[in-house]
Design a protein around this nucleic acid. Sequence first.
DNA 1: TGAAATAATGCTTTATAATGCACTTTACAG
DNA 2: CTGTAAAGTGCATTATAAAGCATTATTTCA
Lengths: 72, 72
Amino acid sequence: MHFTELIKTIKDRREALQVTQEGLAAISGVGLRTLKQFESGKGNPTLLTLQKISEVLGMELCLKIKNISPTK
Amino acid sequence: MHFTELIKTIKDRREALQVTQEGLAAISGVGLRTLKQFESGKGNPTLLTLQKISEVLGMELCLKIKNISPTK
DNA sequence: TGAAATAATGCTTTATAATGCACTTTACAG
DNA sequence: CTGTAAAGTGCATTATAAAGCATTATTTCA
């Protein structure tokens, strides 16, 4: 999953849950500035930041072996 | 996927491919010190670092909605 | 429209990730 | 054992993530 997709996934999820950036920042413990920077595609969040955000959005990070050309 | 699992996944994968930390550092472009720190559970890598490592290990990060108590 | 809410951005400070180098510790083959 | 390779650690430097605040831009809706 590419950087951009990751951002989109989080942003979409946040919006689906009807939470504002401000709200998400508050409940996740991530600074609002950091969140904004992330969602607007700037910056390079740390794993911790990603986890905090994912957590409160009911999502989780995973790491799996790429399928090598599965009739893609 | 928790921090610890993530580390283990990467470490296992690296070993399965019989690559040393030094080798992985070289091909991924991530500094050896950074890699060591990461694999030994210290530190909080950035998304970029994670992606670089995953990439050369033939893995990918993904983010998905957690299953709410699926007869876990 | 225009006002209110939400999101984006510039500037700044502080904390820490990324890195290299040298050294220590572990693991393992012989 | 002992030498060698791989992994871990201390120290120092540089780059940058995290954060807050103030301001500007966008979106939304009555």
